[in-house]
């Protein structure tokens, strides 16, 4: 039985801010299904009362003094911006 449908793939693609051609959707549906099927072997393991690990070292919040420092100059920040004008980043219209 297929775990992932074409509709699932389209929904996840939308959440991922990706678009695919119809034939790519077919390919990704098959591949994601295989990967998820493979991942489901984890269900064999009883994890009742097992704490999840998000980070391997026993670290708490790392604090530092709040000291102000000069920021990065605007020219440098704009260096890799694909489209900018008058020191501002330019994007397509946001409101229809």
């Amino acid at each position: 039985m297929s775990r992932i449908s074409k509709e699932d793939v389209k929904r996840v693609a939308d959440l991922s801010r990706l678009t695919f051609e119809e034939e790519e959707i077919e390919k990704f549906t098959t591949q994601l299904d295989e990967i998820i099927r493979f991942a489901e072997q984890l269900n064999e393991v009883d994890t009742t009362n097992v704490e999840p690990t998000s980070h391997v070292l026993n670290m708490k919040n790392v604090m530092r003094e709040d000291v102000s420092e000069p920021g990065t100059p605007r020219e440098e920040l704009l260096k890799n911006v694909p489209d900018h004008k008058d020191g501002q980043i330019r994007v397509p219209s946001i409101i229809e």
Partner: peptide
Amino acid sequence: IMIGTFALSSGYYDAYYKKAQQI
């Protein structure tokens, strides 16, 4: 990105992401 977005998406988080963290 697709696998990750799927695993973190609503309704699947516990089954995949949390389970994997427990493993």
